[in-house]
Nucleic acid binder design. Structure first.
Length: 113
DNA sequence: CCATTGACTTAAG
DNA sequence: CCTTAAGCCAATG
């Protein structure tokens, strides 16, 4: 494997997990980072999302911060695209914040078991 | 090469 | 719940 690629293994693993997020559910950057074994590298998850534009199959709108705040909405095609997509999937969004975050939150560690 | 930034999180006060 | 501070590391200037 070549290491001097644009995407590291970390990025690739982030993409895989994000793709596995069920419709109508969301998860956090930290949860993903934790599953990957680097809980302190949640920023890199966010950076991976920023680079995920190269791959449209990645539902980046299902990834929010630990408070359920749509911090990355401004990086979409339009600032409102993220919450529009979430609402379409049944996620209640109020003031850029996911309501009932505890209910819709999806822990990536469930698929690892 | 050094400094700053950023779709973050945790701990402590 | 709010503010600081620290940790994290790729990307950018």
């Amino acid at each position: 494997m070549k290491v001097s690629e644009q995407h590291t293994d970390f990025f690739h693993q982030v993409y895989e997990i994000v793709r596995l997020i069920p419709t109508g559910r969301v998860t956090s950057y930290g949860a993903i980072a934790k599953v990957l074994g680097t809980p302190k590298s949640s920023r890199m998850v966010g950076w991976a999302m920023n680079a995920s534009h190269q791959d449209p199959t990645i539902p980046a709108h299902r990834v929010v911060n630990r408070k359920g705040l749509l911090t990355g909405k401004m990086h979409f095609e339009t600032p409102t695209k993220m919450e529009e997509l979430l609402r379409k999937e049944g996620v209640i969004v109020k003031d850029d914040c996911v309501q009932d975050f505890n209910k819709v939150f999806w822990d990536p560690s469930e698929i690892i078991q």
